[in-house]
């Protein structure tokens, strides 16, 4: 109830002082879905610079990262927004998993501590978002509780959602499975790494945020 009220107050203030470029678009999803890869792709496409570093090891992004004033053009349409890349949301974090990936114990413990803080921050920032791009790895099972929790919380807050099935370049990827798991949303299948279907992505982004 309090968060709904806070969001309402935030929205009223935002609408009152709305200026071009203040639209906040957040990238949310579980770890290793490709949020930062997509953030880098968008930022490279329109600003020519990266947002953050990417890695195969989970929880590479452990703090909120922002790129301000991204100006996207499609024909006569224009969209200016601040892009917010968030740490992956997980229900468990074990430093031993990082050790197994070759990290030293102290470094792994530090990474795990930062990752837990990152998850808390990502959830806290939900109320700040105007639009959210949920980035899921299309090659893994979409019926995870983290995915359901993220999407359920966005629905409850009435935040518009663009659902992205990323990594369609992988053999196991299935956009259909993601679509079946969340039939209430249109799903855009892309490969942020390869830049595949980005035109369709921007078209959908305009439909949701424009």
């Amino acid at each position: 109830m309090i968060s709904v009220f806070r969001r309402f107050v935030n929205k009223v203030f935002r609408d009152l002082f709305n200026r071009k470029g203040e639209l906040k678009i957040g990238l949310y999803g579980p770890p290793n879905g490709g949020k930062t890869t997509l953030a880098n792709r968008i930022s490279q496409d329109w600003l020519g610079e990266d947002v953050g570093s990417v890695s195969n090891m989970a929880h590479e992004t452990r703090a909120i990262q922002q790129k301000e004033e991204i100006h996207v053009k499609r024909g006569k349409k224009e969209l200016t927004f601040n892009l917010v890349d968030t740490p992956g949301i997980a229900t468990k974090i074990d430093y031993e998993d990082f050790v197994k990936s070759g990290m030293k114990v102290q470094e792994a413990k530090k990474r795990a501590k930062e990752a837990t803080k990152g998850v808390v921050d990502a959830i806290k920032w939900l109320d700040e978002m105007d639009v959210v791009i949920v980035v899921l790895d299309a090659s893994i099972d979409p019926f995870s509780q983290v995915n359901i929790t993220i999407i359920g919380n966005l629905q409850a807050r009435n935040i518009p959602v663009l659902l992205v099935a990323n990594k369609v370049d992988l053999k196991k990827a299935s956009v259909k499975k993601v679509q079946a798991a969340f039939p209430q949303y249109e799903v855009v299948g892309i490969s942020a790494k390869m830049g595949k279907h980005m035109d369709k992505f921007y078209e959908s982004l305009f439909a949701v945020a424009g």
Partner: peptide
């Protein structure tokens, strides 16, 4: 319910 599930994770 939302936001209980997200708050539980937090």
């Amino acid at each position: 319910k939302s936001p209980d599930d997200a708050d539980l994770i937090k």
